[in-house]
Design a protein around this nucleic acid. Structure first.
Lengths: 202, 202
DNA sequence: TCTTGATTTGACCATCTGGTCAAACTCACG
DNA sequence: CGTGAGTTTGACCAGATGGTCAAATCAAGA
């Protein structure tokens, strides 16, 4: 392992290549289903070379997840208490749907982890995610109290947004098996927009 | 392997125990993450004994999936063209949500398979599922044409129901991390009911 | 160019995993 | 209770897999 000085050009390049490859492999096969050889091959490195940059398979997975957590939570972070309620929520939904379209591997990485009980990110869920959601549901409840949006269970409102948007990334095969050649997001965007306009109208 | 006569008492008992154990293990770890030893231990059998009843790990998984597919599609099958549109759809949703609550392992079994690209059930998706969904969306479209429910993209309407109901089984850890001790389904049922009443009102 | 730390690799290891097999055991029934 | 089919298992195997290591190669600054 290199010293903990500033990373060299090669270190930067290879670490990035490894994380990119790991994202492909872990999101497609889950932690257990991914092999170090597979990730190394995809990154264009030999297995020992890969393990020169990360001490273990687990370490790659952890680095990947914690590196992506911020990206993953960013859309909700942006929900602004001072903005127009309906517009804020609909923008949040649009950002989430856009992430499903543009970052489906990231979505499936988390989906894989969650569906198997989140053994490696349980803590992040109960701390970071829980805190963020609590913060934002306070805003939602406020808006409901002020009559700006319909009164609903705020947690389930958030869950519904996650479910509806991430579904298109996580269960992409199923969606495509049914839609055929039709672009999933072409129909999804107006559908979900309509849904929340109707749901949230006070 | 036993002859293909009628199964003996022991065969029935052990095959059932194996499938039950396999459901536990596959739904919690995915196909690749599950081991034959684990399934055998959970079923109270030795590994060779388990492989006396099923020729391979793959065969157990296949038997499990195809045995559960009917159960899984049953709620949608029941959607009746002659019933009251709003009531038919809301009942379908209630049945799906009930399955999430009562059969979360089954839900996660399919979720695991889907999120990893459904390598073992791709055919069932494009055939059985696609046909069933096409059949039922025809009914939905008919109801829309008759002005009985709001006009929406019928496929995305179905997707939304799957997403919203299965979310509670598939991402159970996440839901519970945020809700704490609150029963997820206590809030989910009225929330989803309200959502679809508002969405579908013509 | 030389040197030294950074990088890369072939060979190797222990463990895990799916699967096999012959021998031993059990059970139902005549 | 004897017998043959049905059931169970310990021992074993081959290949996959995560990880190690010493030796070889490379790159950049003095």
């Amino acid at each position: 392992m290199p010293k903990d000085r500033a990373p060299t050009r090669i270190q930067k390049k290879n670490r990035a290549a490894i994380l990119e490859a790991a994202l492909n492999v872990f999101s497609a096969h889950g932690f257990r289903g991914a092999t170090v050889d597979q990730i190394a091959a995809e990154a264009g490195l030999s297995k020992p070379n890969l393990l020169y940059y990360f001490p273990s398979k687990e370490a790659i997975h952890t680095a990947l997840l914690s590196g992506l957590l911020d990206t993953w939570l960013a859309p909700l972070h942006e929900l602004d208490a001072d903005g127009d309620p309906m517009e804020e929520i609909l923008s949040y939904i649009r950002r989430k749907l856009q992430m499903s379209r543009e970052l489906p591997r990231e979505s499936r990485l988390f989906a894989n982890e969650l569906v198997q009980g989140a053994p490696r990110i349980h803590e992040a869920l109960s701390n970071d995610l829980k805190a963020l959601v609590d913060d934002k549901t306070t805003i939602l409840t406020q808006w409901m109290d002020e009559g700006k949006i319909a009164r609903l269970h705020p947690y389930h409102l958030i869950f519904s947004i996650w479910a509806l948007t991430q579904h298109y990334a996580d269960f992409d095969v199923q969606v495509r098996a049914i839609l055929g050649n039709e672009d999933p997001f072409a129909g999804a965007e107006p559908f979900i927009d309509t849904l929340y306009r109707k749901l949230l109208k006070p």
